[in-house]
Amino acid sequence: MKKIDPKYIPLLATAVVMVALYAGGCLAYPNFGSLRVLVNLLGDNAFIGIAAVGATFVIISGGIDLSVGSVIAFTGILIAQMVGHGWPPMLALSASLFIGLIFGAIQGALIHGFALPPFLVTLGGMFFLRGLSFVVNPESLAIKHPFYLTTVRALAIPLTQRPIVTFPLTAQCFIVVVIAATALAIYTRFGRNVYAIGSSEPSAVLMGLPVATTKIGIYALAGFFSALGGCVATFYMQSGNPASFVGLELDAIASVAIGGTLLTGGVGFIPGTMMGVLILGLIQTLITFQGNLNTWWTRIAVGVLLLLFIALQKAVGARRR
């Protein structure tokens, strides 16, 4: 039998945790194993999952993006406002995606061009967009447009008739993004350069790789994915709210870490991030099913998992040396 490459150990652990949580839930609660729970798990966590995919690229490159939650909230309120002012939804969605991309590129340019620490620049970005969200509209704003009211629902793929279970548009977006991002990471030069920079930036420079454009591209991509997460969130919430998704960046980072991506950069897996997001979702679902447990257990559980996975990464890294 071929020996397992140590870099896959965290990923394997992630898969085991995910299956164990799901199996545990199925054993403990009769309805847990239903198709509806599974579909909701994907649909409800789609927006955070998409943003986490963007964060995965950043973390693989050795950086960090704290602006995720603000970008999602900003995108949501911007779309709500634009649609409220009569913009066609498609135009509003594209415009917000473009803004996310440019915003990320600016963050990347500041980080690379001025050698500023990524956590500070994206912290600034997080503050800035949070404030700007309230400038756009200080209150939560419902989106009342036929596209949102009917089309989004109509695009859901029916799975079973009795009970009626559909595969929602949000979950579809999530799956498509994961597949596309996995391809980007594995099958393009850009993707491989991201890994190279995260593993050893000085080597990447000496090997003649385009470090500057790649780094700016990474943050632009993260901004784009966060904005896409924001778009998907509007499908799910049918509204925009400038005060929403505070602290979401931490969930995104935790998902990435639990998904087997090395927080020091160089190693990471997009499907792992998807599993990480689902693990967070499963914990939440389990706590909801339990009923008498409070939601704060989610934070503690995430914290403990984060600790375990960081310890695991450290142990694997130490053994390799």
Partner: peptide
């Protein structure tokens, strides 16, 4: 001066990988 976390093959070809339509 190579990339420790990537495979041997990638380290040899990085930056000049054979590709078709942008796909490696």
């Amino acid at each position: 001066n190579l990339i420790p976390h990537l495979s041997v093959a990638e380290n040899i070809c990085l930056g000049r990988q054979p590709s078709a339509f942008g796909f490696l």
